[in-house]
């Protein structure tokens, strides 16, 4: 069983950093709004970070074998296609995850 103090520390650290990142910028928001570079960064960074997060999280899915990799690729295609077609985030996520779980379970 995981050490509860380790878990409490993990939650406390995550919460503290997240809140700091959300709250601290308001202290300097006046300067931030004036800096053109910061404004341009705020428009370009989110997309790139999201794409790197997709790659990172795919790496954590267990794509060790060819069949697992194929299942993940198929689920990704379902999610992308649904999002492009219907633009319903809940549907795309639910359907992609359902395909992943169903196919992985059938692989045994």
């Amino acid at each position: 069983m995981t050490d509860p103090w380790y878990l409490v520390s993990a939650v406390a650290i995550s919460a503290a950093i997240t809140w700091t990142l959300r709250a601290a910028p308001f202290l300097v928001v006046g300067q931030l709004r004036r800096a053109a570079l910061v404004r341009e960064l705020s428009e370009q960074l989110p997309l790139g970070i999201m794409i790197i997060l997709v790659m990172y999280s795919v790496g954590g899915l267990g794509i060790s074998s060819l069949s697992e990799g194929a299942v993940t690729a198929a689920s990704l295609c379902v999610t992308v296609a649904l999002q492009l077609w219907r633009r319903n985030a809940a549907l795309s996520i639910l359907a992609g995850t359902a395909v992943q779980v169903t196919l992985l379970s059938s692989l045994g």
């Binding site: 299942v71 990704l76 999002q83 779980v101 196919l103």
Partner: peptide, 23 residues
Amino acid sequence: LPGVGFALTALFTVLSIEAFRAR
């Protein structure tokens, strides 16, 4: 249930698509 963690990948994928659509 193997593969539930895919929901996170799907979330990032959806966010990427929508961020791309915006720009």
